[in-house]
Write a protein that binds this DNA or RNA. Structure first.
Lengths: 216, 216
DNA sequence: CATAATTTTATACAAATGTATAACAAGCGA
DNA sequence: TCGCTTGTTATACATTTGTATAAAATTATG
């Protein structure tokens, strides 16, 4: 009986591959159901290798959570920032990015929920969550501020923060229910709904976010 | 060595006690981490008894999820319906019920997230989720409709549904983030914020939900 | 108070899990 | 081509897990 043939990867390639295999397994089988053996199989390696790169299973899973969160916000931010238009366009694109693929995804919501369920009881997860939330809120505030300013609405720091909390709640809730119940809605319902709702929350004139524009 | 002394309970008492012990364990240790032995210890019985009342661990956990969902909506509905005022008061009390204890609770959010993480991949959980979501949305629609009608706003079934989806997203998101980050906010921020945001989402005159009223 | 019914305890067991460690081999530098 | 480093495989092990089953104790019924 001969050994399995294998190929060496660079440290970054291998780590990424392991983290992504971990996320797929956690989504499908849950946190404990994602056993080191299953993850290894998913990544096409043997179990021992996981411990070579991550000190323990907990280390691996924690890193995978951080990887996921970073990816989610980075994706949405990228889609907002690359918008060539004015502040309204950027905010609109950010909202829509959260209501369309790849961010609107059953798998990602499942992962996110699974991890969030542990935030209260495991400090490693709590730290990652807190940091992610803070970043996301800050990003949202920075997108909202110029929109309010352009409309001549109050846009002091406290105003922006309050609005950001509400809009963030709206996004999170719709993102979650929308991903889980994707089949129930038409593909454009959520993007339309979130832009309209955001206009109302911020007190913008109707159509200032959605008006005339077509989202891709 | 003598056996442990025990007391017999009625079927309902025992089942309830086991379900609640299960929820506490799932919150603290996750779905797989809530082992039958831990649950049994939490309930003050031995492991064998679980299988006497629930055919398998999966059966027990599924039942616990349904129990939790039922409890959450029932609590909020009760607090809305017992409101003696008009339609506005009922809607307001419903919103506030979701932003204050006992519903605003880290433990409940943790549980909810943990279960939601499995909805995509296990049909038992999916069924419970779908049903719960449908009920919750219907309840919300029924609370929104008379408020819109009283204001002379469009309140056809489609209008109410659209608004209910948005408001539900807002509630879910704020409830979740609010519970996890309870320490970050003052105790009245979320209730104030959710009522104001809901006014805006529905297009109600400012203060029509929050105005003058004091929430307990 | 005796007897039966069934809740509850206690023990057993195979399978699976995270971790540790030894053996191997791929690819780099000489 | 040869050795050497270390990425990678393979195996071992104690522990924990869900489930099954036998034994015992509590309560209801007469």
């Amino acid at each position: 009986m001969s050994r399995k043939a294998f190929r060496r990867l660079t440290l970054d390639e291998r780590k990424r591959s392991l983290l992504e295999a971990t996320l797929r397994c956690v989504a499908q089988h849950g946190l404990k159901g994602a056993t080191v053996r299953r993850i290894a199989e998913e990544a096409g390696v043997t179990a021992g290798l996981l411990r070579h790169y991550f000190g323990s299973k907990n280390d691996l899973v924690t890193s995978a959570y951080a990887y996921l969160i970073g990816q989610l916000t980075a994706d949405a931010e990228t889609r907002a920032r690359r918008s060539v238009g004015d502040a309204n366009d950027q905010l609109r694109d950010f909202l829509i990015a959260n209501m369309t693929t790849p961010n609107l995804s059953e798998e990602k919501v499942s992962l996110w929920a699974t991890f969030v369920g542990r935030v209260r009881y495991e400090t490693d997860f709590a730290d990652i969550h807190r940091e992610g939330y803070r970043d996301y809120l800050a990003l949202l505030e920075s997108l909202i501020e110029p929109v309010l300013a352009a409309q001549g609405l109050p846009h002091a720091s406290a105003d922006c923060r309050r609005h950001a909390i509400a809009v963030n709640g709206l996004i999170d809730g719709l993102w979650m229910e929308g991903s889980l119940n994707a089949g129930l809605y038409s593909r454009t319902l959520l993007p339309d709904l979130v832009t309209e709702a955001c206009e109302r929350l911020l007190g913008l004139p109707q159509g200032s976010l959605s008006g005339g524009q077509q989202h891709t």
